[in-house]
Amino acid sequence: MDIELLREYCIQKPGAEECFPFDEHTLVFKVDGKIFLLASLDEHPLRVNVKCDPQKALELREQYAAVIPGYHMNKKHWNTVVVDGTIPRKEVLQMIDDSFNLVKKNKKKTSTKTG
């Protein structure tokens, strides 16, 4: 999987937007104003940060050497995934889906508490 395929997959998600809020090298995907994926355009192989359920995050780190605690993120809730071909594409896409759904779910919880 390369950055173009990753971008196409992320941007097709309902309500997803892409931006460069930090610098011109870190592509960010958000839903409802919340980040669900960060990708470093300078890293080869590609590295992405995705949000993850804390228990699942640990399981993925144990299962795949290419999954490590989230770089510059809350390591309990974020994983960095090195997209080097050692993780099946389907699994990487599932991690993106899970991240998107967690962020979307948390946004709904927040808005129901305040509204």
Results as ranks from 00 to 15, higher is better:
Met1Ser: 09
Met1Asp: 00
Asp2Arg: 10
Asp2Phe: 11
Asp2Ile: 09
Ile3Tyr: 09
Glu4Lys: 12
Glu4Met: 12
Leu6Ser: 01
Arg7Met: 07
Cys10Gly: 08
Ile11Asp: 02
Ile11Arg: 01
Lys13Ser: 04
Pro14His: 04
Gly15Trp: 08
Gly15Phe: 02
Ala16Phe: 00
Glu17Lys: 13
Glu18Gly: 00
Phe20Trp: 10
Glu24Ile: 13
Leu27Arg: 07
Phe29Leu: 03
Phe29Arg: 06
Lys30Thr: 07
Val31Ser: 05
Asp32Met: 13
Asp32Arg: 14
Ile35Ala: 07
Ile35Phe: 07
Phe36Gly: 00
Leu37Glu: 04
Leu37Tyr: 03
Leu37Ala: 01
Leu38Lys: 03
Leu38Gln: 01
Leu38Val: 10
Leu38Glu: 08
Ala39Leu: 08
Ala39Cys: 12
Leu46Phe: 10
Leu46Asn: 00
Arg47Val: 14
Arg47Tyr: 13
Val48Phe: 06
Val48Asp: 06
Asn49Cys: 10
Val50Trp: 06
Lys51Asn: 05
Cys52Lys: 05
Cys52Ile: 08
Asp53Lys: 08
Pro54Gln: 06
Gln55Ala: 12
Ala57Pro: 09
Ala57Arg: 09
Leu58Gln: 13
Glu59Asp: 13
Glu59Tyr: 11
Glu59Phe: 11
Leu60Pro: 01
Glu62Asp: 12
Gln63Tyr: 05
Ala65Asp: 14
Ile68Asn: 11
Ile68Leu: 13
Ile68Phe: 14
Pro69Tyr: 09
Gly70Arg: 08
Gly70Asn: 05
Gly70Phe: 00
Gly70Ile: 02
His72Glu: 07
Met73Leu: 05
Met73Thr: 03
Asn74Phe: 00
Lys75Gly: 06
Lys76Glu: 13
Lys76Thr: 11
Lys76Trp: 10
His77Ala: 05
Trp78Phe: 01
Trp78Ala: 02
Trp78Ile: 00
Asn79Trp: 03
Asn79Lys: 04
Thr80Arg: 05
Val81Gly: 07
Val82Glu: 08
Asp84Ile: 07
Gly85Gln: 09
Gly85Met: 04
Gly85Val: 04
Gly85Glu: 09
Thr86Trp: 09
Thr86Ala: 06
Thr86Leu: 10
Ile87Asn: 01
Pro88Gln: 02
Arg89Tyr: 15
Glu91Gln: 12
Gln94Glu: 13
Met95Ala: 01
Met95Val: 09
Met95Ser: 07
Ile96Thr: 01
Asp97Tyr: 08
Ser99Thr: 03
Val103Asp: 02
Val103Ala: 03
Lys104Val: 11
Lys105His: 15
Lys105Arg: 15
Lys108Cys: 13
Thr110Asn: 14
Thr110Ser: 15
Thr114Arg: 15
Gly115Ile: 08
Gly115Phe: 01
Gly115Pro: 12
